[in-house]
Design a protein around this nucleic acid. Structure first.
Length: 521
RNA sequence: GGGCCGGUAGCUCAGUGGUAGAGCAUCUCCCUUUUAAGGAGAGGGUCGGAGGUUCGAGACCUCCCCGGCUCACCA
């Protein structure tokens, strides 16, 4: 719907006036010879008058969006913004003629123009382009927020009337990108982080693949899916909650090292660190174990940090974080011991339960019958908050995941007896990297015993998630792939959005997504 | 989902029950090296929505919508 406020009306009027001048306000192309950055860095002050005259012969051609106009009768300045930055344009009626100057006076902040002219320095010292001719490239009829920048005598920049309404900034990101300087920088860093991750993985021979987003059976994580429907096949389809089970099929198929940047979709709450669609990178390495993954994970993240910050140390809000390898590694039970002074390995289920009650630790009463789940809950409630510097937490109870291999120290007989005893907890070769109290990823020595795999997945289906949650479907095709035989393998998932948040000092996941999900108006 | 905070002109904001305001932007006029350009004048609003209280509501009450923070939930 066209807004018909005065500002739009006046721009529509200007549009008509421009057409009356015989000017097409939406021409098809424009030849550029330089961008603002190149012009500003290439300029050298002429040494004398002869050089100054010669400089006027060097015509540059630039284009950008008008961000500010300062009219002074028959001469004007305007500031344009292009892909690389801002540049001041000087335009004089004497130089461009009466008609073009008339056109210029009809232009507004937000219009996109092309300028041909020579580079010079103004009396006030600003490198600018002195227009010989200008061309309107796109007339804007929607007013932009006018943000003014003041440079104080000490060189400090003060921004006046910044476009600050967070809701509008997310809903109209194109405007946010135009008027808020730091926004674009964050997204450039995001892309550079992703590029760095890709480079590190490629360096170690990982092969980039693509797997389905639309899946007839979802799996690889525990989350509620988005459900859709395929008309021609008349079947329900799900947006993936994970790509894990597909990457494992590729390992079975003979790719030894694969990775995928993947959008996952989880039908759950939205908050500062959760968006319904989010990006992970997952990589799988045949013949490796979770120690190999820890090493890769450290290197991938350290490299990404170096790539965008030039240092392994960053400041996130008011916390200094150092990504330098190697990171601290601690077993989950040892983390609990350090924090609480208890050894859950020597405690019965009831003793742990009692301890948690005494410490007034909140937990779902439905888990009270399972020692492994209790240990995981105790860890989350008491230890996560102190995991600020990069730390790998190792060896989770088997009850937390059906896709991970038990510790290598157990004998086969031992596993059989432990499984039958509810007071025995089997631990698996899993790690979670914690940074700034956030889980930044997840990794296993992958389970490849098809009999155990089937049992664990069937148990999970049976348990469901209790209550009204959708039951987790059993993926028979995945089980068949594991039955065909997956070599010893380790796999990793890394939460890209959270890593980008840390490395760009962004407080909300919405600040690192161009178009975060917003409730439609 | 709970609690707290917010939504007033295009943007940023003020306005504690009595005629809706400011700066920037916009429009008109002046101004040929300005830079938060400057000078003179003008226009611009269903105060997020719907009810209610009151002689009178932007403000007080109820419900709703949209956000932010936070807690909870969520492998």
């Amino acid at each position: 719907m066209q807004e018909t406020n005065d500002l739009v009306k006046s721009r529509l009027n200007a549009l008509e006036e421009i057409k009356k001048l015989g000017v097409n306000p939406y021409p098809h192309r424009f030849d550029l010879t330089a961008n603002s950055e190149e012009i500003l860095s290439a300029f050298k002050d002429p040494a004398d008058e002869a050089e100054s005259e010669a400089a006027k012969e060097k015509i540059v051609s630039v284009a950008g969006r008008i961000m500010a106009i300062r009219k002074m009768g028959k001469a004007s300045f305007c500031t344009i913004k292009d892909d690389k930055g801002k540049l001041q344009i000087y335009i004089r009626q004497n130089d461009v003629g009466e008609n073009l100057y008339k056109l210029f006076k009809l232009l507004d902040i937000g219009d996109i123009i092309g300028v041909k002219g020579f580079v010079f320095r103004t009396k006030m010292g600003e490198i600018s382009v002195h227009a010989v001719t200008i061309e309107l490239l796109t007339k804007s009829i929607q007013p932009l927020p006018v943000v003014k920048e003041e440079t104080t005598e000490s060189g400090e920049k003060i921004v006046h009337d910044a476009f600050a309404d967070v809701e509008l900034r997310y809903r109209q990101r194109y405007i946010d990108l135009i008027v808020n300087e730091s926004v674009k920088e964050t997204f450039i860093r995001r892309t550079n982080i992703i590029r760095s991750i890709r480079n590190t993985l490629e360096k170690y021979g990982f092969f980039e693949v693509e797997t389905p987003t639309l899946q007839s059976i979802y799996g690889g994580a525990t989350a509620r899916p988005f459900v859709t429907h395929h008309n021609a096949l008349d079947i329900p389809l799900y947006l993936r909650i994970s790509n894990e089970l597909y990457l494992k099929r590729l390992i079975v198929g003979g790719f030894n090292r694969v990775y995928e940047f993947v959008k996952d979709f989880r039908n759950e709450g939205i908050d500062r660190t959760h968006n319904p669609e989010f990006t992970q990178v997952e990589w799988y390495q045949a013949y490796g174990d979770y120690f190999d993954s820890m090493n890769m994970f450290e290197e991938v993240v350290e490299n990404a940090c170096l790539a965008v910050n030039g240092s392994t140390r960053i400041n996130y809000i008011d916390t200094e974080i150092d990504f330098k390898r190697p990171w601290k590694r601690i077993k989950m039970v040892d983390a609990i011991k350090e924090k609480n002074g208890i050894d859950v390995l020597n405690m019965t289920k009831d003793e742990i339960l009692e301890f948690m009650k005494k410490k007034e630790i909140d937990f779902d009463p439905a888990i009270s019958g399972n020692k492994g789940v209790l240990i995981a809950a105790l860890f989350e409630e008491t230890c996560e908050e102190s995991l600020v510097q990069p730390t790998f937490v190792l060896d989770h109870p088997i009850d937390t995941t059906p896709l991970c291999k038990p510790l290598r120290e157990y004998s086969m007989e031992q596993l059989e007896t432990m499984r039958k005893d509810p007071e025995q907890v089997i631990f698996v070769e899993r790690f979670e990297p914690y940074i700034n109290k956030w889980e930044l990823g997840n990794s296993y020595t992958e389970l490849n015993d098809p009999v155990l795999q089937r049992k664990l997945l069937e148990d999970q289906v049976e348990r469901g998630r209790g209550g009204e949650e959708e039951t987790h479907p059993l993926d028979e095709d995945f089980l068949r792939a594991i039955e065909v035989g997956m070599p010893p393998t380790t796999g990793v998932g890394l939460g890209v959005d959270r890593l980008v948040m840390l490395l760009t000092n962004s407080q909300s996941i919405r600040d690192v997504l161009f178009f975060p999900l917003m409730r439609p108006l």
